[in-house]
Amino acid sequence: MFAAKFEYYKVNSVAEALQTLRAHNGAKLMAGGHSLIPLLKLRLARPAALVDISGILDLQGISVDDTTVHIGPLTTHQTIAASEAVARVCPLMAEVAGEIGDPQVRNRGTIGGNVSHADPASDWPTALTALNAQFVIQGTGALHRRVTRTVAAADFFTGALSTSLGEHEILTEIQVPVMNTAQHSAYAKMAHPATFFSVVSAAVVISMSGNRCTQASVVLGGLAPKPVRAASVEEALIGQDLTADNIAAAAAQVSNDLAGEVMGDIYASAEYRRAVAPVEVKHAIYHAAGLAHS
């Protein structure tokens, strides 16, 4: 396929990126290009200009302090999947990164590009919501002053292919709380056989004291325009021993959390996705708790 013409600007700093965005109406940021280039080729996206931010060194890499994993948005999925530090302090991120797409997509695709595109069937929005990640965003305020704001995952994803990122803003960091030793996590997904995007996915982070669940974060992806926090499941889990019956009962609560829009397509209807959501939730809880499967 053959993209329509566009102007191209390679920038080397966040400031330059913001300036270029402002200067060109309808310009779009591009990092690894794995969300945007397929759309360009199909001529479904036709930005007048592309601002290539892949060379901004400040936006790359992973660092970890006592409380937080700081991830540059240009960090590739592969880098996250292979990071020993991430595997140690936030194993859910390592697990999810290794599940995305295929090796080539992981090599080139970036976490920032992925979350900015906000495809409801992609994996990061679900996982980062479950992890209560924070998104640091820079934009331009009055008198062209740079303005930084921080948005929680729950507020960052606003709908299908839609985020709280403004037209002239750029994501500069993703902050994920370090998991403590009582916390366990897992990601379960029914993948579309062609794209490996999720049809239904569940990200689970639970705290355990012995066999008892003391805290739970359960988020569903794939089936709604944006990640869905399964508050009913969380509530049903907390304070319970993780027995087969309790897990099944808690997972079944997910229907209460899916009162809103559930999407369907020719592969899997909304009805089916609703029906199998508890299955993925259950798989994820089992996996997180280190229990053998029923």
Binding site: Y8, G33, K41, V105, N107, R108
Partner: peptide
């Protein structure tokens, strides 16, 4: 040194 899909890369 890493594999990329050259149809999804400018």
């Amino acid at each position: 040194g890493v594999t990329v899909k050259s149809c999804t890369c400018l």
